[in-house]
Design a protein around this nucleic acid. Sequence first.
DNA 1: TAAATATTTCAATTTATATTGAAAGTTCAA
DNA 2: TTGAACTTTCAATATAAATTGAAATATTTA
Lengths: 168, 168
Amino acid sequence: MKLTEAKLQFIASWGAFGTHWGINRTMAQIHALLMVSADPLTQDDIMEELNISRGNVNMNIRELITWGLVDRILLSGERKEYFSAEKDIWKVATQIIKERKKRELDPMLKLLGTLENIEGDKRDKNVKQFVETIAGIRKFGKQADQMLDVMIKAEESWFLAGMMKMFK
Amino acid sequence: MKLTEAKLQFIASWGAFGTHWGINRTMAQIHALLMVSADPLTQDDIMEELNISRGNVNMNIRELITWGLVDRILLSGERKEYFSAEKDIWKVATQIIKERKKRELDPMLKLLGTLENIEGDKRDKNVKQFVETIAGIRKFGKQADQMLDVMIKAEESWFLAGMMKMFK
DNA sequence: TAAATATTTCAATTTATATTGAAAGTTCAA
DNA sequence: TTGAACTTTCAATATAAATTGAAATATTTA
């Protein structure tokens, strides 16, 4: 397989992958393109490679930047902005984890905390089931939260080395 | 807060949560409803509680069943089918992990394996970057894959206990 | 400052996804 | 069998999300 074809395939499947994770297809495709590009690209480069409009590129690039996955790069002597993606997949993963934790897990845990304290007779099986379910999810969520915190802070090597040793 | 209100809030946010994870809102809501219900429910119960159509309930329930998150229950002497959700959140999580691994991670790893072997001069920086990126993602994916396998098999207690001890 | 170049915005449109509801299919008791 | 109770299907419809592209805004350089 040639580079051009492989690149297209990678971009396409990274895009499809993204849609299963609440990330829109184009955003994931731009990310994929930038990850496999040795040099930074301009908006026009991206438009051309992916056949999408300027506005679309602009919006999704900005989103990638707020996710901390893409950097704006200014080359001296150049008028245009260039964009480049973080290529260390561990950094990519921890960045995504950090953001999603903040946006999704933390608020959910907060809500579960309030829901656990409902009024009502604990002998009512529906009250009992509700409280138990919420408590169970909350406990699980807290543990995941802690685990992810460690992961975010951990260095790639020792974390995985330790992890894998533990499970062998 | 009363049970009824808390239930509605939980269902609503579990639904919203689901949409960030590639699960459709209604499916997540039905799942939430069943998780907090002490007794199994019928399709009609679900229709009424969530104000959705029969067809919608039926399709999403079936999907939940194929995900292994909901069971069909037949009560003797009753004509109707009842549905009940797994309430142990660890089982829910491992079930979801198992399914998504099969559907998403495994195929992606397979693809990455083929993409790594592209033709072309390794001194070309674009070829080099492509191969490196793909290899990096693949390595990461394989490690995640192993970790998830362990998690799927692990019992709640020892896994988390060991995990947390390790990180303290 | 003007005008050339580049970026951002956003209403309109397209595309993708979810939902409905009525008809068809199934099951089961009488 | 029959028909009432229940489940499934799926074309039509409604809703939500992504995309376009041209106009507005911003930035640079001559």
